[in-house]
Amino acid sequence: MAGVGSYLKKHTEALVKDVGIEPACTLTGKSKATLGRYYSDNEEHSDRFMPIDAVAALEEAASYPHVTSALADLKGITLSYDDRRRNIDDKGGINADVIALSQRFAMLMAEYQQSIEDGVITVNEAKRLLKETTALQQVLIEMKLHLEDGPI
């Protein structure tokens, strides 16, 4: 459980920092100290986790559902998260998906090459890789939906 707890605490910290500490305090009704305990690595706080209602309130305000995504990862579940909110009807179909897939994969590989140049992938580099991986996943989901729609 120690590894799982640490993993969840890291994502809890990312969630609070995404929203901002002051707004997080307002949204959850918790103090800065209490929020800090929820993601603290100190042994004395190892059994403290953010309540689910606080997670829900923060994820509503956040740019990404950090804790929900972490829980899904732990269970081996893949979530589909689309923050683009496109209003246009995508008429490109499978051909446009293949092109988008190639472009996204190239962007992921370029980001990876840049990140691994010095032999170490930093936290910020890992976040950029995660963002590219998620974008690539979204293209694959769109491609899957187009293929399920029927004949090409």
Rank of each mutant, 00 (worst) to 15 (best):
G3M: 15
G5W: 14
L8K: 13
K9Q: 14
K9M: 15
K9A: 13
K10M: 15
T12V: 00
T12G: 01
A14K: 12
L15Y: 01
L15M: 08
D18C: 15
D18S: 15
V19T: 03
G20L: 13
G20N: 06
I21P: 03
I21E: 12
I21Y: 05
E22I: 14
E22H: 07
P23T: 05
A24I: 07
A24Q: 02
T26Q: 09
T28I: 05
K30R: 07
K30A: 07
S31R: 01
S31L: 02
S31P: 00
A33W: 02
A33T: 08
L35P: 09
G36N: 07
R37L: 07
Y39I: 13
Y39S: 09
Y39G: 12
Y39T: 12
N42R: 13
N42A: 11
E43R: 08
E44A: 07
D47E: 10
F49E: 09
P51E: 00
P51Q: 01
I52P: 00
D53A: 13
D53K: 07
A54G: 03
E59K: 03
E59A: 09
A61K: 00
A61H: 00
A61V: 14
S63N: 14
Y64R: 13
Y64W: 15
H66D: 11
V67W: 06
A70R: 01
A70N: 06
L71E: 09
L71I: 12
A72L: 12
D73S: 14
D73R: 12
L74K: 01
L74C: 05
G76E: 07
T78G: 04
T78F: 08
T78N: 07
Y81M: 14
D82S: 08
R85Q: 10
D90S: 05
D90I: 10
G93S: 03
G93Y: 01
G93W: 02
G93R: 00
I94Y: 11
N95S: 10
D97R: 05
V98L: 13
I99A: 13
I99Y: 09
A100D: 11
L101G: 01
L101N: 04
L101W: 01
L101H: 03
S102H: 09
Q103F: 02
Q103K: 09
Q103N: 12
F105Q: 08
A106D: 12
A106I: 05
M107Y: 11
M109S: 11
E111Y: 04
I116R: 08
D118Q: 11
I121G: 08
N124F: 06
E125V: 00
K127E: 15
K127Y: 11
R128C: 02
L129R: 06
T133A: 15
T134V: 10
A135R: 07
L136M: 15
Q137N: 07
Q138F: 05
Q138E: 09
I141V: 12
E142N: 10
E142D: 11
E142V: 01
E142F: 01
M143G: 00
K144Q: 08
K144S: 03
L145Y: 02
L147W: 00
E148D: 14
E148L: 15
E148N: 09
G150H: 00
P151Q: 05
